[in-house]
Amino acid sequence: MHGGTRAHVRWVPPPDGLFKINTDDAVSKHNQRGAVACVCRDSTGAFLGASAMVFDGLINPEVLETIACSEALALAEDMHIAKPWVASDCLNVIKEINEGGSNGQQCMIVKQILLKKDQFLEAKFSHERREANGDAHRLARSATTLDTGRHVWFSDPPSELGVVVNILNNQ
């Protein structure tokens, strides 16, 4: 963000009663480090919480995207959200979760997500294009510079998050 202004984020709001958690991953260009990020907002676009996880040596994008979906459920648990809507720009991972399994390197993470998903009143997983996922994308990219481990924000959003613009009606 240049000059202290925040970017506008094109965002698809969740239906009333659901809380949207956008996810993404990033791989550092300078070292063998990957990160995932989750950003939770309500149906008005208000920031509720965010988290990031940083890993040394883990750079497989599809595995990282799967971990991001798992982390979204962990963030929902931390925030006592009964109806999370997890959105990722990785269609393969969303298909694996919604179809109930995977044969890839991330198969055990998908199984964990499926078990954890049943602990919620309703947990929805959907694919969204990257344009609607700007917050999570910027936070994941920025997180590659953080210490290894999990980072969580509940009251004050990380500076990487932008001003939300509702993609459905450009508000």
Rank of each mutant, 00 (worst) to 15 (best):
G17Y: 13
A132Q: 10
G49T: 01
Q106I: 02
A50W: 05
A143E: 04
S51L: 13
A46F: 07
I81Q: 09
G17P: 00
N103A: 05
G34A: 03
I67Y: 11
K116Y: 03
L18K: 12
G134M: 13
A87F: 05
R141W: 10
G101F: 07
K95W: 07
N103P: 02
E77K: 15
D135C: 15
L75P: 02
K83D: 10
D42Q: 07
L114W: 05
E99V: 04
R129M: 12
V39C: 04
V93T: 15
E71I: 02
N60A: 07
S51A: 13
E122C: 11
R138K: 13
A68G: 11
L48P: 02
S51P: 01
S126A: 14
C69S: 09
F55D: 00
K95H: 08
G17W: 12
S70A: 11
D135H: 12
H127A: 05
L139A: 09
E131G: 05
Q106Y: 14
E96G: 01
R138Y: 06
C107M: 11
F125R: 02
L73A: 05
K83M: 12
R33I: 07
A132T: 03
S126M: 11
S142W: 10
I21M: 06
G100L: 06
L91M: 14
I109F: 03
N103I: 13
T144N: 04
I113E: 01
A82S: 15
A46S: 13
A35K: 01
T145F: 09
F47I: 06
L121E: 14
L91H: 11
S43L: 03
S126K: 08
V39A: 01
F55C: 02
A52R: 00
V63D: 00
L58D: 01
K124I: 15
C90W: 02
S142G: 11
G101T: 10
M108Q: 15
A35N: 03
A76G: 07
K117Y: 00
L75F: 08
L115T: 12
S51D: 09
C107E: 12
L121Y: 09
V36T: 14
T23A: 09
N98E: 07
E62T: 06
L115C: 13
A35T: 11
I67L: 15
D24P: 10
T66C: 10
I109V: 15
A26R: 01
N98H: 03
K83R: 15
D89L: 03
A46L: 11
R138Q: 09
S102M: 06
S142E: 13
E131H: 10
D42M: 07
D78Y: 14
R130Y: 03
E71F: 04
T66N: 07
D24S: 05
K83V: 05
K117Q: 15
